[in-house]
Simulated scan of single mutants.
Amino acid sequence: MMWILGAVIMLLVAWRVDWRALLADKGRQHLCFGAAMALVFLWMLQAGIRDGLEVHFLGLTTLALMLGWRLSQLMALLALLLVTAFGVESWPEFGVNLWLGVILPIAVSYFVFLLTYSYLYRHLFVYIFVAGFFNAALTMAVKSLAMAAYMVWSGQYGWQTVQSDYLSILPLLLFPEALLNGMAITLLVVFRPQWMCTFYDRDYLNNR
């Protein structure tokens, strides 16, 4: 059922994409598929004690700030399909991974960006440290807590098992996830700002 609802969401997202502009822009296409492949390699680096309780870096905050709400969802979906096809994730859990590993974290990341853009002073360091660094840690926390809640609710593991074998690792992941995304976003806004669809020179550099 979850994968059906996820498919409906993705179809609605795809419906709103400007495909004509995307197909006419070869550079944007390469950026999108390159980002998806980067996620595949990042998500394949998993560690865990029990099946279903593996942890890995997300990288979705960078993806959301780079491609925007719609394309980031579609490219993360492509990455999830490939990771599942390679056997890293299981097909029966595809719907759960789609909702809790793609749709939810990207929604959180983009919502935090919108909050910073709307209510905080538009400055380069706000973009990097709040919309990037802090946002990535928050997104990792939300995703992990949601997955833990699902594991307990579905009866796959008890709360004590989830807490000791999964959530206990979470504090060790927050800073590296934040640092990974913060560094990536810093490099992109310095050397490839045209790749970041949420970064505007007139707001973050020229706004004084």
Rank of each mutant, 00 (worst) to 15 (best):
L100Q: 06
A178P: 02
Q73M: 13
W3R: 15
L145H: 13
W153D: 11
A146Y: 03
V13L: 10
A36P: 00
L179K: 09
F129R: 05
H56N: 01
Q156V: 13
D203Q: 15
C32P: 00
T62N: 07
L77G: 09
V83F: 01
G182M: 07
V83W: 00
Q194A: 15
I128Q: 05
W3K: 15
L5P: 03
L11G: 11
Y119W: 04
L188V: 13
L104F: 00
G95E: 05
M2Q: 14
Q194N: 13
W195A: 15
M196L: 12
G132I: 01
L115R: 04
F33A: 01
L12P: 00
F133L: 09
A136S: 07
L138V: 14
M196E: 07
A14L: 02
M75Y: 02
M151P: 06
I185P: 04
T161A: 15
A35C: 09
L42H: 00
A136E: 03
A21R: 11
Y204G: 05
Q73E: 08
V130I: 14
R28S: 08
L77T: 08
R16F: 12
E93C: 11
L114T: 12
G132D: 00
A38H: 07
Y119E: 00
G87S: 06
W69Y: 14
L180Y: 12
W19C: 02
G155K: 06
F129I: 04
M2T: 14
R208E: 09
R192Y: 09
A21H: 08
W195G: 11
H30L: 12
G6H: 09
S164T: 15
P105G: 05
L170I: 06
I49L: 12
L145A: 14
W43R: 08
M37I: 13
A146N: 05
T139K: 02
S164E: 12
L42Y: 00
R192H: 11
Y166G: 10
L45A: 14
D51W: 02
F134N: 10
S144F: 14
I9R: 02
L67V: 03
T198W: 07
R20A: 13
G68Y: 00
Q163A: 13
L104Q: 00
M66G: 04
L120H: 05
R50H: 14
I128N: 04
A64P: 02
R28I: 01
